[in-house]
């Protein structure tokens, strides 16, 4: 029969490991509370890439971001094959009527990895945007803007700086919130 106690070093290891376990569980617990859809973009606060792309349904007309300097630009990446784009279509139509009327806010659509015919059919079915759309057939512009998937919307202030970004479909509420972020950055 043995009654001796364990050497003190064992206790130290136990305590260290228990402390690390608690620390790790606390970190996991903190991570569980986070919204996985919110991925911080390093582009917020940085000047937007000044692109020049072909306008949808034209052969050589261009959309240049620099043409809209001095205006707030709402740039929405969309595609006819994107299901979530249908969800936010009505929101964009409403918002462009509300904010685009006085000319202070310019909306631009970026038709991503699509073809003109499919995009035109989509707009006929869902309702024409009262603003121009450019095309990004290979998705290179999307890479320039660090886009993850469709739809995504960038809010660029009058100085050409990206003030906010929406990953996924816009809602009236999220649109208002992003516009407030643009105003806050002025």
């Amino acid at each position: 029969m043995t009654t001796e106690t364990a050497p003190k070093t064992i206790r130290w290891w136990h305590f260290t490991l228990i402390f690390v376990m608690i620390l790790m569980f606390a970190m996991f617990a903190a991570g569980l509370g986070r919204d996985t859809k919110i991925i911080p973009s390093p582009l917020i606060g940085k000047p937007a890439y000044e692109f020049s792309i072909r306008k949808l349904s034209t052969t050589d007309e261009k959309i240049n971001l620099t043409d809209y300097k001095g205006k707030i630009v709402v740039m929405n990446f969309w595609a006819s094959w994107c299901v979530s784009c249908r969800e936010e279509h009505e929101v964009l139509l409403e918002a462009s009527k509300k904010y685009g009327a006085d000319g202070k806010v310019q909306f631009i659509g970026i038709n991503h990895k699509d073809n003109d015919r499919a995009a035109e059919d989509f707009l006929k079915r869902m309702g024409q945007f009262p603003y121009p759309s450019g095309v990004d057939p290979q998705g290179r512009l999307a890479l320039e803007f660090g886009v993850y998937g469709m739809p995504e919307t960038f809010f660029i202030n009058e100085k050409g700086v990206i003030a906010a970004k929406q990953i996924g479909p816009l809602t009236a509420k999220s649109f208002e919130a992003k516009m407030k972020a643009v105003e806050a950055m002025q």
Partner: peptide, 24 residues
């Protein structure tokens, strides 16, 4: 708090060891 060489202590030790190996 002291961990003697009881069955419970051995259980805790085995549990901690498994945790360490799983995490590694």
């Amino acid at each position: 708090m002291s961990f003697g060489r009881t069955d419970n202590a051995k259980g805790v030790q085995a549990l901690l060891m498994s945790f360490a190996l799983i995490m590694a």
